[in-house]
Write a protein that binds this DNA or RNA. Structure first.
Length: 461
DNA sequence: CGTCCACGTCTAC
DNA sequence: TAGACCTGGACGG
C-alpha cells in the first residue's frame, strides 16, 4: 500500500526529493522509503481539525529540528493578520498544539558574543510565541526559497546559504495568528491531549445552556470540544449510532466523570480492526467500547495515527484518510444542514431536534420549492468520472485581486521552475481528487481501490 | 461562463 | 441567526 501510494505520487516525490535530501538528518529514525513516505504524507497536511493541527506541529518540529532561522518574519501584503515584530540573528522554531490551535515558539540562540548585543532587534533575547488558527485551509510547509507555495502569508527564513522557508500557507485566509499570543481563553481543553480535563469540563457544565442544542452542534462548540470539527463529529456520532439531533444534555448526562481509558490500547485495537475488516465487520458489530466523550478523544487520535494523511480531498494522498472515513461524505449516508448551515453527515434517524426546513444541503438559500422528501439520501449520480484533465492547461493567473491595489506584491516567489512544479502538483491532484457522489460501480478507474474497498466493507455489513 | 461547495471562526443586526 | 471573510475545484449549461 505504501508503495502504491509512492508510485501514484511519483511526481510529488520528485518535487520533494531535494527537501528530503537536505532534511533527512532530522528524522534519523526513519529510513529510506519510510522517510520518503513520511515526508510526503506529512507534507500533505492542509486541513484544520484537531488531528491535523497536531500533525502540523509534529511537522514543524520534525522539519525545523536543528535548523537555525534568521532575520525578520515576513508577512504577505494581502494578509490582514498582524505583523510579527521579531528580528533575531539566530533562532529556532518549535511547535505545540492544543485542540484547534498551534503555537510556534521562536527561541533566540545563545550568541557567544559578550558585549555584542543585538542592536537591531530589541527583543533578541526574548522568545516569542505565535498562536495560529488554521481557518479552513491553513497549513505549514518547509521548502526551499523558490518553492514557497502560493498563499504563504507568514514566512520564516533560515540562516544558511541557500535559504529555506517555513511558511504558514492559507489559501482562503480564514486562518489567523497572534504574536505573543496565548491559547485562546474561551477554548476548552484539548480533546486529544488533555482528555481528563476535557471530560471534566464537559460533565461539570452540563447545566450550561450550550447543551440545550443538538449534540452534533455542541460538538463543534470549541469551548467544550476544542479540536472537534465537521468530519470528526460525523464519525464520532456514527460509531455510537447516536442520532445527531438529539439534545446534547440527554446524550451526555449520566456519563462517568472518570474514564479509565488507557492511552494507546484502544487506539491500537482500532487500527488493527481497520486493517482486518473481515474480522471486525463480520457480525456488523461495532464494538467501539466507549462513550461519546471517549470517542471525542480516541477517534481524533486514530487520524493522528494514520500518519499524516489528514483531510485534504484536493491535495496529495487522500486515499488512506478517505478509507478511514465511515460516514462523512460517504456514499449512502444522509446529510442535513444543521442550524448553523453546516452539513451534518449521519446514518439512520436524524433525531428530534433536526431542522425542519433545510433538508438537504442543496436547499441552502434557494426558495426552490422542489419536492421536499425527507432527509435525502445522497443521490448516486452515475456520472462517469472520467479523467477530467482537459482543463489542465488553464493556467490560472492568480491575480492578487484588488484588496491592496497599491501593492501587487502578494506574488511570493513563484516563477519559472517554482511555478511549474506547482502546476504539476495541482494536476496530479485533480486527478486523484475523486470525491463527490460517484457511484462506486462506475469508476473502475485507477486510484480508487481503497475507497472502493471501504464501501464494499460497509455494504457487506 | 456561472453556481455550489468546502476541514472555521467572527461580529453585527 | 444571518452574513462576512476568501480561494478554488467540481459540475452544469
Amino acid at each position: 500500500m505504501l508503495y502504491k501510494l509512492a508510485t501514484r505520487k511519483h511526481i510529488f516525490v520528485e518535487i520533494y526529493i531535494a527537501d528530503i535530501c537536505t532534511c533527512s538528518k532530522q528524522a534519523p529514525f526513519l529510513l529510506g522509503s519510510d522517510f520518503l513516505l513520511w515526508h510526503i504524507l506529512i507534507c500533505s497536511i492542509k486541513m484544520p481539525e484537531g488531528p491535523e493541527l497536531h500533525l502540523a506541529s509534529l511537522y514543524v518540529n520534525k522539519m525545523c529540528d536543528g535548523v537555525v532561522f534568521s532575520g525578520p518574519v515576513i508577512k504577505s501584503e494581502v494578509s490582514k493578520n498582524p505583523e510579527v515584530a521579531f528580528t533575531c540573528d539566530s533562532f529556532r522554531i518549535t511547535a505545540t498544539s492544543r485542540g484547534k490551535e498551534v503555537k510556534l515558539t521562536l527561541t533566540p540562540m545563545k550568541s557567544d558574543d559578550d558585549g555584542k548585543r543585538r542592536s537591531k532587534g530589541g527583543q533578541a533575547d526574548q522568545h516569542m510565541d505565535i498562536v495560529f488558527r488554521f481557518g479552513m485551509s491553513g497549513y505549514f510547509r518547509f521548502t526551499s526559497e523558490d518553492e514557497v507555495p502560493k498563499h504563504a502569508h507568514l514566512r520564516f527564513y533560515t540562516k544558511e546559504k541557500p535559504r529555506r522557508v517555513l511558511s504558514f500557507v492559507d489559501t482562503r485566509r480564514f486562518g489567523s495568528w497572534q504574536p505573543n499570543g496565548t491559547w485562546q481563553p474561551d477554548r476548552g481543553p484539548c480533546i486529544m491531549f488533555e482528555y481528563k480535563s476535557f471530560r471534566e469540563n464537559v460533565l461539570s457544565h452540563l447545566s450550561d445552556r450550550a447543551f440545550d442544542r443538538p449534540i452534533c452542534e455542541v460538538l463543534l462548540n470549541q469551548k467544550y470540544f476544542n479540536g472537534i470539527g465537521n468530519y470528526l463529529r460525523a464519525e464520532i456520532l456514527y460509531r455510537l449510532n447516536i442520532p445527531p439531533f438529539v439534545c446534547a444534555r440527554d446524550a451526555l448526562e449520566g456519563l462517568e466523570l472518570e474514564d479509565e481509558f488507557e492511552d494507546g490500547k484502544p487506539v491500537k485495537d482500532e487500527i488493527t480492526d481497520t486493517k482486518t475488516p473481515e474480522r471486525a465487520k463480520k457480525k456488523g458489530m461495532k464494538r467501539e467500547a466507549g462513550d461519546v466523550l471517549r470517542l471525542c478523544h480516541t477517534v481524533p487520535l486514530e487520524v493522528v495515527s494514520l500518519g499524516g494523511k489528514g483531510y485534504d480531498p484536493e491535495k496529495m494522498d487522500y486515499s488512506a484518510f478517505e478509507a478511514w472515513l465511515r460516514c462523512y461524505y460517504v456514499d449512502g449516508m444522509k446529510s442535513v444542514r444543521d442550524h448553523n448551515g453546516r452539513t451534518m453527515w449521519f446514518k439512520g434517524d436524524p433525531g428530534p431536534m433536526a431542522p425542519k426546513d433545510s433538508k438537504s444541503p442543496k436547499t441552502k438559500k434557494r426558495a426552490k420549492k422542489d419536492d421536499d422528501h425527507d432527509y435525502t439520501e445522497k443521490k448516486k449520480v452515475a456520472k462517469t468520472m472520467k479523467e477530467s484533465t482537459t482543463k489542465k492547461r488553464v493556467v490560472k493567473k492568480e491575480t492578487p485581486k484588488k484588496e491592496k491595489p497599491t501593492h501587487p506584491k502578494e506574488v511570493v516567489s513563484k516563477r519559472g521552475k517554482a511555478e511549474k512544479t506547482q502546476e504539476e502538483t495541482q494536476q496530479s491532484e485533480t486527478k486523484s481528487s475523486a470525491r463527490k457522489k460517484k457511484n462506486s460501480s462506475v469508476e473502475a478507474a485507477a486510484g480508487r481501490e481503497r475507497r472502493s474497498g471501504r464501501v464494499t466493507r460497509k455494504n457487506s455489513k
